[in-house]
Structures are given as structure tokens and as C-alpha cells.
């Protein structure tokens, strides 16, 4: 038992490993640190703005690009604006204008119930992924 503790000192571990071992270990740690930055950049464009009218997707926009679109439905018209990575309902033809009053969002959704228009933000996923996980 005493010998195990003697071998597990830093110098013991240093002696049992080769030069290539140490290079490999440091390389992996460096790769990890580098990939934290890389992943952040990779994830960024994943934020999509999806505009649905009457349960059909009419627009899929990138949250990082400033733009404004108009959605015309038989029930009315909505104007959605994207600016500075935020979305808002600029104009709506409906009565109560709850969606306009909701203001700017960068996640979640804006719903205009009278016109059946839904603006949702977030996720890079497509229609195929409806569940986080399925347990069998």
C-alpha cells in the first residue's frame, strides 16, 4: 500500500510516462480549450426565426440578418422585423394588437391569434425533431 502512494506522487507519474505521452495529454487539453471557442462560433448561426401562418411555415429567417417581411393571410396582414438579433411584430391588422405590444424578443415566440401567425425564435432544427428524447 505504501508503494502505491509512492508511485502516485507527481514525480512517480512523471517517471512512468514517456515524452510522447505528455505531448499527447497536453495536445488533448489544448484541443479542448481551443474547441470551446470554436463551438461558440459554430453554434451562433443556429438561431433561426420561423414564421408560420395557418400552421404552414412561410419564412425561415436568420436572426443575425436585419430584415423585415410582410405576411399576408386571408385574415389580415402582419409585418415582422428583425434588427440587432431581435425580432418584433411591427404591424398587425388584428384588433387587440397583443403581438405588437409584446415588443422585441430574442427567444421564444410571438403569436398573433386572430391572424393565425406564429413567429418563433431559436434552435437550428428542422420539422423532424419534435421531441427531445423518446424513452422506450
Amino acid at each position: 500500500m505504501k508503494r502505491i502512494f509512492k508511485d502516485l506522487t507527481p514525480s512517480g507519474i512523471f517517471n512512468m510516462t514517456t515524452f510522447l505521452d505528455k505531448v499527447l495529454f497536453l495536445l488533448l487539453i489544448a484541443l479542448t480549450i481551443a474547441s470551446f471557442f470554436f463551438v461558440k462560433r459554430f453554434i451562433q448561426p443556429g438561431s433561426l426565426v420561423r414564421i408560420m401562418s395557418d400552421n404552414k411555415t412561410v419564412y425561415v429567417l436568420n436572426l443575425n440578418e436585419d430584415t423585415a417581411v410582410s405576411v399576408k393571410t386571408p385574415l389580415g396582414e402582419n409585418v415582422i422585423e428583425i434588427k440587432d438579433k431581435m425580432v418584433h411584430m411591427k404591424e398587425a391588422s388584428c384588433q387587440n394588437k397583443l403581438c405588437v405590444h409584446q415588443g422585441w424578443i430574442d427567444r421564444g415566440a410571438i403569436v398573433c391569434l386572430p391572424n393565425k401567425v406564429i413567429v418563433s425564435v431559436g434552435g437550428g432544427g428542422g420539422d423532424s425533431k419534435k421531441y427531445d428524447a423518446i424513452s422506450r
Binding site: T17, L24, L28
Partner: peptide
Amino acid sequence: LFGRLLSPVGVSLL
């Protein structure tokens, strides 16, 4: 491939 250049620690890492 590496023979004695890698100790069991390096092999275990890989």
C-alpha cells in the same frame, strides 16, 4: 505503431 515511445498512459489516452 509507437512501441516503447508510448507508455500504457499514452495508449490509454488514445
